[in-house]
Simulated scan of single mutants.
Amino acid sequence: MRGLKKKRRIQIIVVAFVALASATAIIGYALQDGINFFRSPSQVIAEPPRPAEVFRIGGLVEDGSIVRGQGEEVRFAVTDGGATVPVTFVGILPDLFEEGQGMVGTGRYVNGVFEASEILAKHDETYMPKEVVDALKEQGVYQDPEGGS
């Protein structure tokens, strides 16, 4: 009788471990598409990501680079002062999107062009995403609009 209880307890522990491992694997697989890493243009040029990898890129929209194509197609360049990456986007841009302003795009880097599926722009005169500020500071081109560092 005592051996049967011990055997049953071991079986329950093994089944619980297998269930926990399976649940962890399923959650990891499900979240894999939802994780988008941020890269600055300098990082993209230095180490180009795989074409299938979805990531976020951020920086300043380069002055004079916005070109509107057929329909809702827009081409522009994003820079962090150290490197410039061409971007294509099909869709409606945010109202606050303009040259010389901060932006973050989500998409893929294919054949030397970032193909954006989503573009986010600043939401007021002074806002810029932390990742973009850090990348611009790293390049030495960030100027704090409020006069601080």
Rank of each mutant, 00 (worst) to 15 (best):
Q139R: 14
I66T: 10
V110F: 12
N36E: 09
G82A: 13
G81D: 13
T79Q: 09
P86H: 09
I12S: 08
D134Q: 12
Q43W: 03
G69F: 03
K7Y: 15
D95M: 07
V85F: 06
V133Y: 06
I12W: 14
A52M: 08
G59F: 13
G58P: 08
F17G: 15
E131T: 15
F55V: 04
H123W: 00
K122C: 04
A46R: 07
G69K: 02
A23C: 13
A23M: 12
A16R: 08
L60A: 09
P129N: 06
D95C: 07
T24R: 07
F89V: 01
V90E: 11
E53C: 10
E99I: 02
L93N: 04
E99Q: 03
G3V: 11
I92G: 00
R8C: 08
I12M: 12
E146R: 05
F89W: 00
F37P: 01
T88M: 05
V132A: 07
N36C: 00
S42F: 00
D124R: 01
G64W: 03
I26Y: 14
Y109T: 06
A46V: 00
E72P: 01
M1H: 14
F37R: 14
Q143I: 05
V15G: 10
T24E: 01
D33V: 04
D134H: 06
G140M: 09
A77Q: 11
Q32E: 09
N111Y: 15
S117M: 10
T24L: 07
G107L: 06
F89K: 01
Y29R: 05
V104Y: 08
D63F: 12
K130R: 15
M1C: 10
F38K: 13
V15H: 00
R108F: 10
I66F: 02
E125A: 14
F97H: 06
A116H: 03
V18F: 12
G112I: 15
P51R: 03
S117K: 08
R8Y: 13
F114C: 10
V133G: 15
I35M: 02
G81V: 10
R2W: 00
I26F: 13
A83G: 10
N111F: 15
F76D: 05
K5H: 14
V74A: 03
I57K: 08
V104D: 11
R75I: 02
A52I: 05
I45D: 00
S22G: 15
Q11T: 09
S40M: 12
V18W: 09
A135F: 03
D63A: 12
V85Y: 09
Y142K: 04
S117P: 00
S65T: 08
A30N: 10
E99S: 03
A30S: 14
T88W: 02
R50I: 01
S65C: 13
A121F: 02
M103F: 04
E138S: 14
A25C: 02
R39Q: 13
G140Y: 04
V90L: 02
E99Y: 01
Q32A: 04
S65N: 13
K7E: 15
